[in-house]
Design a protein around this nucleic acid. Structure first.
Length: 581
RNA sequence: UGGGCCGUCGCCAAGUUGGUUAAGGCACUGGGUUUUGAUCCCAGCAUACCUAGGUUCGAAUCCUAGCGGCCCAGCCA
């Protein structure tokens, strides 16, 4: 069933998915009436990437859509900061910035699992009092050895049946800092023989004499994810806790904690429910935190915001847009099947958004001189170009035409290949927004390189003048007056990897051969050159995005671009159905 | 061969309380418009739903048996 309700973020119709179905049922059952509440819970130990964008769009998008039926619906941005040894304030700041950039409504609020440390501690004590948790004093190796295997049950800890009073005393002393790291651990007492490893008396608190980026030194014991996450959800009144597939095995634990705590009167029903969906996989991209770190620390890219990186910081600098990501999220959908999305789907989403939004400008990236030999010297002829072909209201701007121009080197060929209909000796082509010209010759240097092209213009054919349409020419090339154009640094980016599955098995590989994803790095993913721009472009603001006509979408670099000293990054090329074949 | 999850067109993905010819998007192909080889518009594009049996008047949807893929043995999240 396709719901034709327009998604306000994009023009894509909202397509049903299994999560929406669940929510719809919950609304129909009156399990939840006033609010559908979700959360986006990043751990502040790294930068957000494309995969997070999918999750953000899902969680915030759901809250936004369901607000129509359940007006209090919202999504909490919650920092899952329960491991002080890995988390830092700089990541909190970066994540906040990225979420804001994507443009979702956080209602000016931020949530932190660390704000719940007191409540979490209390809940843990309640579990102990109920005989549902105990302090284990075995070391981590012993714990691992007694956990059993996938096919064999674990063996109970000798400390499993400590008295409630002893457990309470020990746990309080753990908190008081009486023990070194690793001396004790608080475990839930569930089932050492469970086929689900997560239920074999999982750890819920560990000792860490570490400084926390928010709570400082006030705690030396920290809750584990499985305990902290469900409790945080319950505290915030999350109705639907969405996470990726690998947490499916944790759901029984999630439910167990909440069920026990609800029975103990800590939480009211309905309890939050965890629902898993498949994570994003993209061709030509790596999204694992480990690999991303390797790329940055190994100097393979220029920092976390390198436009080649699939981080949100990199995407922003590359010129990818929040609307493009939302379109992408809608387009790929949500399901539980492992999927691998073609990278060009993402690129197409950016093209689609940019096509609508980006004004057109002229730039010549690989300039070669063109002289109009019958054009008067010292004459400047104003030509006018619309800022957007589909939006007349955006007006036009003047492009000065003179005798000496820059054109794209690729737009001229001495001996044209089959199907080439740009400039070639003896043939005609239109100077976009100007006149029809006919190529009369060219100069080459000693190495045979073309240095200058000559042409004559037909004064009766100026764009926009009566009769200019009389003669049709197929070729249409862009140009810039040498005297009026300004040079700019142009950074041409391409995909970071040259293979669809970086580091993965390839056709000719030997059976046991393993490859390093770094070997699949595309050495041509970044190319910096000087190009020429129409004057207005040099004055634009940072992060302004444009379509350079006939070339692609470009963005003024977020950091390096300055008025008068322009730096543009190529976001994505225009689709080119000609060069394909 | 412990447990959990998944398998519908090249890539995604609806549909799964069994009921006309299996949504939609992307890609692709053909045509039209076009002063961007762009955009835009129109048309085409799974007798088929991992396989094999079975139940039924009728199955992608139910049953059985297989096959294939992903995840789990951190005091990470």
């Amino acid at each position: 069933m396709t719901d034709q309700t327009a998604n306000t973020a994009t023009s894509t119709p909202v397509v049903s998915n299994f999560i929406r179905s669940r929510i719809d049922e919950d609304i129909a059952n009156k399990t939840f009436c006033d609010a559908i509440t979700t959360r986006f819970p990043p751990e502040p130990n790294g930068f957000l990437h494309f995969g997070h964008a999918k999750s953000i769009c899902l969680n915030f998008g759901l809250a936004k859509d369901y607000a129509a039926q359940c007006p209090q619906s919202h999504c909490n941005l919650r920092f899952d900061d329960t491991n002080p040894t890995k988390e830092e304030t700089k990541y909190v700041d970066a994540i906040r910035e990225d979420v804001a950039w994507l443009g979702f409504d956080t209602r000016g609020q931020e949530f932190y699992a660390s704000d719940y440390f007191g409540r979490l501690y209390h809940c843990a004590e309640q579990l102990i009092r109920a005989g549902l948790a105990y302090v284990d004093s075995q070391d981590s190796e012993t714990l691992r050895a007694t956990r059993g295997t996938l096919t064999e049950p674990g063996t109970p800890s000798p400390y499993r049946n400590r008295s409630i009073d002893e457990n309470l005393d020990l746990f309080q002393r753990m908190r008081a800092g009486e023990f070194p790291d690793g001396a004790h651990i608080l475990r839930a007492k569930i089932d050492m023989a469970s086929p689900n490893l997560n239920l074999r008396d999982p750890a819920i608190y560990r000792i860490r004499h570490a400084h926390h980026h928010r709570t400082g030194d006030s705690w030396c014991i920290y809750p584990m994810y499985d305990f902290a996450h469900c409790v945080s959800d319950a505290i915030e009144g999350i109705s639907h806790s969405l996470c990726t597939l690998e947490f499916a095995d944790h759901r029984p634990l999630y439910d167990w904690f909440l069920e026990q705590l609800a029975k103990l009167g800590e939480f009211k029903r309905p309890l939050p429910q965890q629902i898993e969906f498949s994570r994003l996989n993209l061709t030509y991209v790596v999204l694992s935190k480990r690999k991303l770190i390797q790329l940055v620390s190994g100097g393979h890219v220029d920092g976390w915001n390198d436009p080649r990186l699939p981080t949100l910081k990199g995407a922003r600098r590359r010129g990818f847009t929040p609307q493009g990501f939302k379109l992408f999220a809608d387009r790929i959908g949500i399901s539980k099947s492992d999927s691998l999305i073609d990278y060009h789907v993402l690129e197409d989403c950016m093209r689609e958004d940019l096509n609508e939004r980006a004004e057109r400008r002229v730039a010549v990236l690989n300039p070669i001189q063109l002289i109009l030999s019958n054009f008067p010297e010292n004459h400047t002829e104003p030509c006018f170009a619309p800022n957007h072909p589909h939006h007349e209201e955006l007006g036009k701007r003047e492009l000065p035409l003179t005798r000496t121009l820059w054109i794209e080197r690729e737009d001229f060929m001495i001996e044209p290949t089959k199907g080439f209909f740009r400039l070639t000796p003896g043939k005609e082509v239109r100077l976009r927004y100007g006149y029809i010209i006919k190529c009369t010759g060219y100069d080459t240097n000693e190495s045979g390189e073309i240095t200058c092209v000559y042409a004559e213009y037909d004064p009766t054919t100026k764009s926009g003048t009566p009769g200019s349409e009389a003669r049709k020419v197929k070729g249409n090339i862009h140009w810039l007056s040498c005297a009026h154009s300004v040079p700019a640094e142009i950074r041409l980016y391409d995909r970071l990897f040259k293979t669809p599955n970086p580091g993965g098995r390839q056709a000719g590989d030997a059976p046991e051969q393993t490859r390093d994803f770094l070997d699949d790095l595309n050495p041509n993913a970044k190319h910096v050159q000087i190009g020429m721009l129409e004057p207005a472009l040099a004055q634009c603001a940072r992060e302004a995005c444009y379509q350079f006509e006939r070339i692609g979408y470009f963005v003024a670099d977020q950091f390096d671009h300055k008025a008068g000293q322009p730096v543009f990054n190529r976001t994505v090329t225009l689709r080119d159905t000609w060069s394909k074949n």
